[in-house]
C-alpha cells in the first residue's frame, strides 16, 4: 500500500466578496499518494487555486482537515507552517516571483539562507538544483536578463533545492509561450520521476492534463472527477 502524502477530508472554504459569500470549496475530499503527479484542472473561478492554497497551508479551511505527510496543517500555528513549508513543500509560481535584485543562484540559495547549513553547502545545492533544471549557465544573471522560460526554471530550482516532499505549482505555464510551457511541464515530470517528489499542478488548460498521473477536475468548488 502506498503512503498517503496529502489527505483532505470534508474541506469547506468560503470567501466574502463585496457582501456576497463565495463558496470556493464545498465538501472536498482528496487523497494524493507519495510520488504522484496530480493535475488540478477546471475553469477560472472553480476553486482549484483555493484547493492548492489549502493543501499547502497557505490558507486555512473553514471546515475539515488537511493532513500533509502525516501532520494536520489546518491546525498548525504560523511558525510550524513556516517550518513545514521550508522542509517539505516547494512552490512554483505563475509570476515566477524571483527577487529582482538577486542573481539566479542567489534566488535559489535564498531558501536556505535562514538555515544552519554552511555557505559552501548551500552553494553546492543551488548549483545542483540549477543543473537539474538545465539553467546552470545562467546562474549569475539577474531575473531581468532571463527569458520567461528561464525564470520559471530558476523558480523550479528554488522549489527543489531543499528536496521537498511535495511541490505545488499554480499555473506554472500561465505566463509562458506554448513551447516554454511544454518544456516546463516536461521538466516537472522529469523531477517527479527522478526525485520522487509529489507534484500538484493547477492549470485551466485542458491540453496539459496529459502530463499528470491523475487529473482532479473541479467545477464550482466541487471535485467532479
Amino acid at each position: 500500500m502506498k503512503e498517503i502524502m496529502i489527505k483532505c477530508e470534508g474541506v469547506h472554504k468560503e470567501f466574502r466578496l463585496r457582501g456576497n459569500i463565495i463558496r470556493a470549496l464545498i465538501n472536498v475530499n482528496v487523497e494524493i499518494e507519495a510520488g504522484e503527479f496530480i493535475m488540478i484542472q477546471g475553469p477560472t473561478g472553480c476553486g482549484k487555486t483555493t484547493l492548492l492554497n489549502v493543501m499547502s497551508g497557505l490558507d486555512l479551511p473553514d471546515e475539515g482537515s488537511v493532513i500533509l505527510d502525516g501532520e494536520d496543517i489546518a491546525r498548525a500555528n504560523e511558525d510550524r507552517l513556516s517550518n513545514i513549508r521550508r522542509q517539505k513543500i516547494g512552490f512554483v509560481f505563475q509570476d515566477f516571483n524571483l527577487v529582482e535584485h538577486l542573481t539566479a543562484i542567489e534566488n535559489v540559495e535564498a531558501l536556505l539562507w535562514p538555515t544552519v547549513l554552511r555557505t559552501k553547502e548551500i552553494e553546492d545545492r543551488a548549483i545542483a538544483a540549477l543543473r537539474a533544471v538545465d539553467v546552470l549557465e545562467r546562474k549569475d544573471h539577474y531575473p531581468s536578463d532571463l527569458s520567461g522560460g528561464e525564470r520559471q526554471r530558476v523558480g523550479m530550482a528554488r522549489a527543489i533545492i531543499h528536496q521537498p516532499r511535495v511541490l505545488f505549482a499554480d499555473e506554472p505555464t500561465g505566463n509562458l509561450d506554448p513551447t516554454s510551457g511544454k518544456n516546463v511541464l516536461e521538466l516537472l515530470k522529469k523531477l517527479n520521476k527522478d526525485l520522487g517528489t509529489t507534484m500538484v499542478v493547477v492549470t485551466h488548460d485542458s491540453s496539459l492534463v496529459q502530463y499528470g498521473d491523475r487529473v482532479i477536475k473541479m467545477d464550482r468548488g466541487r471535485i467532479v472527477r
Partner: peptide
C-alpha cells in the same frame, strides 16, 4: 510585498 510574501511562502518565518 510580493518578495516578502514569496519568502514566507518558501518557509521564511516572520
Amino acid at each position: 510585498r510580493t518578495e516578502i510574501a514569496t519568502l514566507k511562502c518558501i518557509g521564511y518565518t516572520n
